[in-house]
Each structure stands twice: as structure tokens, then as C-alpha cells.
Design a protein around this nucleic acid. Structure first.
Lengths: 201, 201, 201, 201
DNA sequence: AATGAATGAGGATTCATTCAT
DNA sequence: CATGAATGAATCCTCATTCAT
């Protein structure tokens, strides 16, 4: 995660502690006093830097979102699509890439998910924006493979919805609900198989 | 929802207000004063009835959980399995039944999901219990249809996991994230098709 | 001062303490903790009742203003003017009446003056309103005595301004700057003489 | 205003900002952070220069007081008294001179008045001192014109008090309450007439 | 000489909870 | 039984001030 550079040791401890505590107990159940204590700084230092508790949250969440979603953007997509790969290969690359990213930023991911689910306000601000990004990017990919005749005959945006539902459920259940460190290759393969072929014999 | 019967008007107003507010803003961001005001009772009345704010939450969540998960238990399962239905039929019945139940109890469902995601503590108490219930019940069903040869050749509990992931994502994304009133039949059919056959041609 | 009736003992102690401390140190230099301590109540009790520190201030100031200015309204004015009195008599009655009122409410008067002088915001809200009340009431009186030929030949509103300047300075210097308990009759007579005849032989 | 010479640009910006903000919102409602921001210096610079916020206030107030009151001292008084002028002429010169001075230093005057009214502590330190200065200087003047037979037969210090009350009210109401930039000659003449002859025909 | 970083002490305000009536 | 009154403990946040660089 590319957080603003040139933080002092104390400032780094603040964001570390904040992420850890927000991930563990949720933003609303974490007091600035707790963060200060965990970071071994004064509360005042937190407010000097971030102004409000809310801005502290945003300053953690936003860089994560920027990498979580648009990262799979042009670079990734184009390279993948230019190669002679199947959608299954693309999906495999995508899942492995995102699993790796989330594994490395598991706590921030937890914070992001928890707060999007919990804070109506934040959700309403972010969801349309995220939905737009995801849709616009992925719909190209779907369209690309669809024209190649790789998918069964259902509308592209139905495919998108189902994928989104499953992949979202996949990441959230593993990284947030079960609090797993990572997801192993075997499970990724299970997921890919499920997505590609379903469960019917 | 079978909440304890014989509630006075005031008691009903309290739980209605609590559910509405918890669903909207989350338990942590709702004060007992707000609930009291919305329910047009004194704060003291709430505490007389429920002892603590936490017990109030539990008294809303627990009846919902009891119906949400175990409801699909013996009655449903046995009847379904006894008939000569395919897994697809079972899944259709199950989804429709649960969509109906959640539609009618959307706000409580939102509270349940939000708090399970948010409160590590609550999650740790409930997840093993829920997981046990779901697993024990559904694994019988899976095993039943598996023996009938309806599934591709993957372990039963992999099937269970994938189903759980997808169905959970399905309900949460629609009823919590998107705050939909219900899910129409067409989308249910899309989901069934996705689960059964995946997306590959 | 007619403050809202039916205050509990604690509630009365709150307003007493607030008035005393605001008068002594000014609103901005008095913390709610100090008020609570002086009143021997919890800070929470103050906020339960008044919501904010600002509303507490207003709830002290407004009843005082209502009596301070419009009190000299219809009752006083009409009776005075109906009698065959001179302006000097009217002024004497007015000054004595107001001195008595302020003596009895010296601390609130101090709070009112201090905050009007100090808080731009409060001043801008109150001054136009007060000015309107004073002007509309007193200009009638001035006009009345002016037609009787009691005044030298200067515009009525010049007389009003000079009176306001002097009487304001009189009350503020004595009751606020010098913190006097009251103003004795001799000084009132000096003031009347000054207003009526100036200082030139 | 003769503030200490040789101020660097930064130091000037500090006192300008401080005066402006103190005049506008009052000392207690102005933070050193605000001053630093307005002056475009670091807070630390303010404290390096002035030690404490209180000393900053005093360093603004004291030079003003020195010119506001004693300025009318020896030079002014003697010259005026030596000429064959009436008290009315003296008063006219005095008022015009003070109006000019305050007009040019309106904001500092506002700070001085506001803080004297507001801070019991400051008031108690300054009032006896100021009163002594004013009394000792002006009582000579009053005595001078009194012996010339210009005044009606009331004690000199009663005249002094009334003058002080009116002139104080005059300046404060115009420059502080109404926040006027200056006072025009017509109003000064009205004031002089009022002081000299009162309002009785 | 100037400042960015840091903070202890205190600021107003909110909260879940208790209890006498 | 219901509630108005009351509160201790916490919450987020601000402030004047210090100090190493």
C-alpha cells in the first residue's frame, strides 16, 4: 500500500495501530484514546495529523480502495487479453493477483469491508463509484471473451453480476469472516472450477 | 418472526424502533436515547425490559438466527428430499423460501449481518454454532444428491463451501449492500443456472 | 427574573452557579466542569437540561433581556405620560425603576453586557432587535415631551442617541465596570441634572 | 501607535493578525493556532517572541493604553489651558483628538475595551491605574475651568464622573458596539451641546 | 531565527445505566 | 409499571506550550 511517504516513526505507529484496531473491533468501537495508547503517542498527535477520527479512517481506506479495484485496470487487463489465454486463465490470474494483494493488506481490507457494510453513509458514497469502476473495466473483459464464444448464452451483465457475487463472497468470507491469512491454490482452483462449470455433472 | 408473544404496544414500539435504527445506522451508532425517542417511551423503560443495550440486540438477533438457519431443517429438508426432486429443484425451493423469509425480515437480517461482520466478539460466538448447524444439515442434503450422481466429481464439502460462498454473497449483496426489498424470480433462475452449470459454454 | 418554574433544587443550583461564574469570569472563560462543580451536580445534568453550553447562556440571557428592555413598555410609559409629569420626572422614575431592576439582577446584567460586547455573533443578533425596541418605545416618549416644548431645539433622535449613550454608560460603568451593588439617589439626581441641564453655567 | 520599532515582517504579521482576530472574536475565542495561520508563521514563532498568549495580549494592549489615556497629558492639557479657550473648546479639541486616535487604532481599542469588560482580572489591574491617571489629569482641567466660573455649581468630581460616563459611553457605543470607522463632526457637536447644556429648553 | 512534531491538560458533549417516585 | 432526574465514565477534539533540529 502506497501511503504518504515521510511519516515519522510515531506517525507510522498511529496508522498501524488504527488499522489493527479498526480491523479487529470496527471503527465505531475503537476510541481515539485506544489508538493513541496502542501507538504510544498522545491523542493530540492523532488529531494534529488527521483532524478528525473520520479523516483518519478515510486516509486508511482510500489508498486501499484505489489499489484494490483499479489496480486490475489497464495494465493487467490488456496484457492478459492480448495473450492467447482463455477466460479461465484470466480468472486464475486475477484471483491469484487479488488474493496476494489482500493477503498483504488483510487488515485494511477488513476495515474497508466492515465499514462499507456498516456505515450507510460511506457505503452510499463508495458503492456507486466502485460499481462503476468494476463494471466499466470488467465488462470489457467479459465482452472480449464472450465474443470468443467462451461463455454460455446468457447476458454479459448477468455473468458480471454472478461473478461479482461469488468473488465478493469468496474474498469476504475467507478474509473477513474467517480471518484467514491467505487462500491456497487448491481452493482457488475449486473456485475457478465452480465458476466455470458449476456443480452439475 | 416469532418474537416472544404478548408484547405490549410499548414493547413492540421499542423493538420496531431498535430494529429500524440498528439496521440503518448500526448498533454502535445508535444510542438508547434515540431508540427511546423513536419508540416514544422513556429510556428507563428499555432498560427495565432488556437490562442492557446488548441484551436488547441479542433479543432481536437470536430469534432471527433461529429461523434463518435451522428453519431449513428437518421439516423442509426431509419433505424436499423425500420427493423425487433434483438438486436444482431443491435449490430453487430453498432460495425462494429464504428470499421470502429475508424479504419479510429484511431489517433484522441487515442487523444480523452487520453485527456479525462488525463485532469480532459476536462473530466468534455465532460463527462456529451457525457453521455447525448449516454444515450438519446441508451436508446430508449434499450427500443425498451426490449419491444420486447429480454432482461432478468433487468432494462434498467443497461443494458445500462453494454453495455457501455464493449463496451468502447473493443474499448479503442484494439485501444488505443494495438494500433491495426482494429478489425476483428471474435473478433466482440466473443464480441457479450459475450454480448448476457455471459460465463456460 | 421570571425563569421557568418547577426547577428542581439541582437545576436551580445550575443556573445560579452559571450566572455567578459567567458574570465573574465571562462565558468563554468558564468551563461546564466548573459550573457543575459549583452547582454540585454532574456535567451530564447540565447538558441533559440545556443541550449545549450556548443554550445555557441564552436561557439565562433572554429572560433578562425581555425584562430589561420591554419592561419599560406600555404599562410604565402610559401611566407616566398620562400623569401631568415633566420629562425630568419621567426620567427619574425610569432611572430608579431600572436601577432597582438591575440591582436585583446585577449578575445577569453583567453577563448580558459582557457577552454583547464580547461575542460579535450574539451582538449582531441582539443589537438590531434591542435597538428597535428601545427606539420604538422611547421615541414616543421623546416626541410626547418634545411637543410639550420641554426640550431644546434638536432632533428627537439626536436626543434619543445622547440619552441612550449616557444612560448606557451610566449603568454599564456602575454595575459592570465598578461592580456596584446599586446606585444611590444622590447619584441619580446628579445624572438627571446632567442630562437636563448639562454642565455649563 | 508606537509599538516597539524594528519589527521584522513576520513579527508585524503576528501582531496585525492577533489584533484583528482578538478584536473580532475576543482573546478567549482566538487560538494561537489561528493567529499563526493568519500571520503565516509557525505557532512556535509566536511563543518564541512573546512567551505566552497572555503576554502577546498585553504587548498589544499596553502601548495602546499608554497613548489612549495619558496622551492627553501634559502637552495637550497645558497648551489647551494656556490658550484663552472655553471648556467647550477644550472638550471639542479633546473629543476630536481622541476620535482621530481611536479611528486609527480602532481594532486595538476594541480589544482593550472588550478585555477590560471581560476579564475581571485585567480590569482589576488596569482600572485603578487608569482611573488614577484620568482623574489626576482631568481634575486639574476641571478645576481650571471651574474657577473661571464656566460650570454650574456642582462638585468638580461629580462633573468628572458625568463626563467620564458620557464620553466613555460615546466611544464604546460607536467604536465597539456599532463598530463605526469614525465619528463625524456633526455628532461630535451634538455630544458637546449635550454635555454643555443638556436637553432642557 | 524558525519550525515541524509532539503533548498534558482540559474542553464540550454523549452514553448506557440507575433509582426514587 | 413507567418515568423524569441524575450521573460516572468515556468520547472526540482543542489548546497553549515545549523542544529538538
Amino acid at each position: 500500500m502506497h501511503l504518504p511517504e515521510k511519516l515519522t516513526a510515531k506517525q507510522e505507529r498511529i496508522i498501524e495501530s488504527a488499522i489493527r484496531l479498526f480491523a479487529e473491533k470496527g471503527y465505531s468501537n475503537t476510541s481515539t484514546a485506544e489508538i493513541a495508547k496502542a501507538a504510544e503517542v498522545s491523542e493530540a498527535s492523532i488529531f494534529k495529523q488527521y483532524g478528525t477520527k473520520d479523516k483518519l479512517l478515510l486516509s486508511l481506506i482510500i489508498p486501499c480502495l484505489k489499489e484494490l479495484f483499479p489496480a486490475m485496470a489497464d495494465e493487467v487487463l490488456h496484457t492478459v487479453m492480448s495473450k492467447a489465454v482463455t477466460f479461465e486463465d484470466f480468472l486464475r490470474g486475477f484471483l491469484k493477483n487479488r488474493v496476494e494483494f489482500i493477503s498483504e493488506n488483510r487488515e485494511i481490507f477488513q476495515v474497508v469491508i466492515k465499514e462499507i457494510v456498516y456505515k450507510e453513509e460511506l457505503k452510499n458514497e463508495l458503492l456507486p463509484y466502485l460499481s462503476e469502476i468494476v463494471t466499466s473495466r470488467l465488462s470489457k473483459v467479459i465482452a472480449f471473451f464472450r465474443e470468443r464464444g467462451e461463455f454460455i448464452d446468457i447476458p454479459a451483465d448477468t455473468i458480471l453480476k454472478m461473478l461479482f457475487t461469488f468473488v465478493g463472497g469468496f474474498f469476504v468470507s475467507r478474509f473477513v469472516l474467517l480471518n484467514l491469512r491467505s487462500i491456497d491454490d487448491r481452493e482457488i482452483e475449486d473456485a475457478i472450477r465452480f465458476v466455470m462449470d458449476g456443480i452439475r455433472k
